[in-house]
Amino acid sequence: MQVLHLDKVTKTFGQLKALDQVTLSVAPGEVYGFIGPNGAGKTTAIRVLMGILQATNGRATLFGQDAWQHAVELHKRVAYVPGEVNLWPNLTGGEVIDLFVRLRRGSKTRYEDELLERFDLDPTKKCRTYSKGNRQKVALVAAFASDADLYILDEPTSGLDPLMEEVFQQCVAEVKAQGKSVLLSSHILSEVEKLCDKVSIIRQGHIIESGSLQELRHLTRTFVSAKTARPVPSLADNPHVHDLSQQGDSLSFSVEVPHLGEVLSLLHQHGINSLECMPPTLEQLFMSHYEREG
């Protein structure tokens, strides 16, 4: 059974189609990356999953149950951090965390104090004095302090400094180690790359690519830079080689991944002095999708 499943979910706001036939599933124990630029529909999809918005068409389920109908019951097993964390200005951070943990009505908080220390958050301050990063920390502490089966995190690190991002990544790794599932929406690709088993890319309400990072990398090109003993004239004619530049004995180009072997053997015939192959980063993956779609 899937922990989380969107089945051809469409959501319209008046004329605007925010989600168009979005399908996505997260299996138990999986950390799932949900990436796309601002306004692509990540937050809308998550709000449908949280029963905050109702799908116009299609079905959203958590643990096999309808996300809208059974929201209250289901949320006992889910920890959620919204994309824009707005808190009550005249409550302290500590009060908000307590309130959040109590409202989940799930099992009791286990290491709230430890989390506060790790995230370096002063819970005695009023929320009005918190920066965006600190408000996010409040939501993250409340989320990770709860014993949930599924963590739905909507761009949780957009206000955190690099040190705190590190702490966040540790927390995700810890819940993953406990066999919990995580849906992590982000536009910080290095983070998704580091944490996620699987990725879906969303753009203008459509899922344009899904799969493991390995699978997605097959769709793109590997970047090669090399020095050869003799020039390689036939490289320019190879249909699988792109962006070629040659300066003296150094070459750089990108090559379609399925044809990497045959191109390398071509280089080998001309005597390789140095060779560097770089797998595509998620950034490149992302950009190439955008270019292709125009």
């Binding site: 905050i52 019951e73 959620y80 707005n86 808190l87 009550w88 959040f100 409202l103």
Partner: peptide, 11 residues
């Protein structure tokens, strides 16, 4: 954006 915190929990 306050109600989201409640309705996203068991409320």
């Amino acid at each position: 954006g306050h109600a989201e915190h409640l309705l996203g929990r068991s409320v």
